[in-house]
Design a protein around this nucleic acid. Structure first.
Lengths: 193, 193
DNA sequence: ATAACTCTTTCACTTAAGTTAAGAAATGAT
DNA sequence: ATCATTTCTTAACTTAAGTGAAAGAGTTAT
């Protein structure tokens, strides 16, 4: 299981056995059931997540409505904004499938960072890469219609459309479930000619 | 002028005089005229920007249309995605006002990072903070209408509405210039009662 | 197995954004 | 200062998303 994590890290830096053991000794691997809530609104947290298997969802509640902002699946990591800003969380994080993930603590990371500067490099590179990736996603979102966004998702992350409930998907696409349903019907109609 | 930069950095770490001099010796301060294009589509670049005074804009061209994705003003930094991904740029970056900024090179940064680990920490913290901030902006964009987005911008960055041409602002808000114009008229109409 | 719930689809109606076109205002160049 | 070009606004029309309501599918619990 941990091999998935080390394979991922190897994209950024090469680790010695000592360094790998330092990570393993932290006991960060967890297996959680579908529906588990990892973080609630108002909570203070220092935890970051990295999904090895399964899917977690970030959302917030506004006017009694769940607004789904992101999904993280295999090989994707997520540090909730509240961990960075050190303020109570505005977001919920929950597992929409049985999930295996690592949960790491920012204090713990700070300690590892100072012992092994290489980790700081990993974190910096990952943050920079995610920033660029998110920038591109944001720009694509801005410049396209709901229909284009759905088609784009179908191309880029077809798995999500299978494994995620429609209403969460609709919210993720910035539209209502009704619009998503209608939009899909329209696409099928078009493809028939 | 450089004090602006050091004041900014002091939010993240405390620098010694030696460290400050190391930065100054790199000769990163530049003054550029309105309209100057800092980065073009297709170009390979390793340059990051930090605005001390003025405003720069990132955009790309699709179907002959400029799509404005972001503005950076005083105390804001920007590393184009192409620098991170090491591929030719999809974006243009230009100055919409006479601007004073720092332009730094990623090779240079790597060297400084290895000499002064503190810099790596600055870069990591900045990237993490920007990532969280951008996440929040993205989520707000997704869950609000063009009108709400305009009103939100009016609150959060009223200066942009003054200093940026309408068509660039419209594109930034993900709508057409006509819609922005109409939407503003609607808001004024409402405020009259 | 069935009842209770939740999720998804469909419909009719309202509202606002995209589109095309034309006129008004602002900007820049000579 | 004038003219030309670009930018911004207004209008009429088309298209699609939001809303509220209700029916059909799919789940879960008892």
């Amino acid at each position: 299981m941990q091999d998935i994590l080390f394979d991922f890290i190897s994209k950024y830096v090469t680790l010695t056995e000592d360094e790998k053991n330092a990570i393993l000794s932290l006991n960060i691997f967890h297996s959680v059931k579908k529906g588990t809530i990892l973080l609630k609104e108002g909570q203070k947290s220092k935890e970051s997540y990295f999904v090895l298997k399964g899917c977690i969802r970030a959302y917030y509640i506004s006017d009694g409505e769940e607004k789904t902002t992101s999904f993280y699946t295999e090989m994707e990591g997520f540090t909730p904004p509240c961990v960075v800003s050190k303020t109570p969380s505005e977001y919920y994080v929950s597992c929409i499938e049985d999930t295996i993930l690592t949960i790491s603590n920012s204090d713990m990371e700070a300690e590892v960072n100072s012992k092994f500067p290489k980790f700081e490099t990993i974190c910096r590179l990952m943050a920079e890469e995610l920033l660029a990736k998110q920038r591109i996603d944001f720009d694509a979102f801005k410049t396209s219609s709901p229909e284009q966004r759905y088609l784009n998702l179908l191309q880029k992350r077809p798995d999500l459309i299978q494994r995620v409930p429609q209403q969460q998907l609709a919210s993720y696409l910035g539209i209502t479930p009704q619009s998503l349903s209608r939009l899909r019907a329209r696409i099928i109609e078009k493809s028939k000619g």
